[in-house]
Simulated scan of single mutants.
Amino acid sequence: MKKKNIVLALCAFVGAITFGQEKEPTVPEATEIYEPVPPKVIPGKNGSAPSDAIVLFDGSNLDQWISAVDSTVAKWHLNRDGSMTVKDKTGDIQTKQNFGSVQLHIEWRSPAEVNGEGQSRANSGVFLSGLYEIQVLDNNDNSTYVNGQVGSIYKQHVPLAMASVPSGEWNSYDIIYHAPEFEKGQKVKSGTLTVIQNGVLIQDNVEIKGTTPYIGWPKNPPHGKGPLRLQDHRDNSRVSYRNIWLRELD
């Protein structure tokens, strides 16, 4: 900011305060801010990663991932089309790196060949901090409990819409996650989640009540940064993932 503008802004601010009450500024410089300048980010195209993103999966390898069970090499199938598919009964996989608040882009696909019903049809999940699940499920002509359907914050928040594409086609999730905050072992601020599925807002800055267990109430164990985890539901779900990247918001 130029020295002249700084002087004008200060004069306007000081002149606007009378007996402890702030008056409306009378010069434009009083409401103009020049620093800090936001960093420049080059956007990606068609869902590809922007210039400041961390690419977690681009289809070439599983180097960024490990088994969530024992931290060994991720055992899911790596496909020729640039995707990976859950390998049944090998367990969840998670990132080697830990993250806090993030903007996450991830694409997933249920099999075109329909198999199973309810929670047993193409069931998987995306876990933020390894704890908070956004449900992945094929709900096309397949009903289930609505706080466990596709796009739900599992057992906590029903999605605003069911915005899935036909079975066998690629869905996208764009997620804004603000991690909860803890002090002295106690939660002092809840985390939040916003989810856009295929361009449709399905979770609007909802409060994370705690963990997302299958049985029981949400719990709030204190934690810092954690991995991104993808679920093997152990029912031959055959869910595939591709084009996974995130931007750290911390």
Rank of each mutant, 00 (worst) to 15 (best):
Y154G: 07
Q156S: 12
L160G: 02
T211C: 08
L160P: 00
G210C: 04
P218R: 13
W76N: 11
K225Y: 05
A16W: 01
P213M: 11
K155Y: 06
G210Q: 02
K155Q: 09
Q197Y: 01
H105K: 05
V206H: 00
Q156W: 05
D63F: 06
K45N: 08
S129I: 13
E117P: 00
G47N: 04
I153N: 01
G226L: 12
T144F: 02
N139F: 02
D138N: 05
N98P: 01
V136C: 10
F182W: 05
P221M: 01
S143H: 07
L193T: 12
T90N: 03
T18Q: 03
N243Q: 01
H178D: 04
A12Y: 00
P43W: 01
R80M: 04
N61H: 14
Q103T: 08
T18P: 00
S167F: 00
V73M: 11
S172P: 08
Q103F: 03
L131A: 13
T211H: 05
V195N: 07
M1E: 08
P111H: 05
D141F: 07
F99V: 11
K40M: 10
D235V: 15
I134C: 05
Q21G: 04
D204Q: 05
D250A: 14
G148P: 00
D63L: 09
G91F: 06
L8A: 10
G118P: 04
P180T: 14
D63N: 15
V114L: 09
P159G: 08
R242V: 14
G47D: 03
N140D: 03
I176A: 10
Q97M: 09
A163E: 01
W108L: 10
K209C: 03
K23A: 15
V126M: 04
Q94M: 15
M1I: 13
G224F: 12
N61P: 08
Y177D: 07
V200D: 04
I153G: 01
Q135M: 13
H77I: 15
N220I: 15
R238N: 12
V86A: 06
G168D: 04
V27I: 15
E22S: 14
V239T: 14
N5C: 07
V165D: 01
L10Y: 07
W76M: 13
N139E: 03
G210M: 05
G210P: 02
Q64S: 12
T90L: 11
A74V: 14
Q64A: 15
V126A: 02
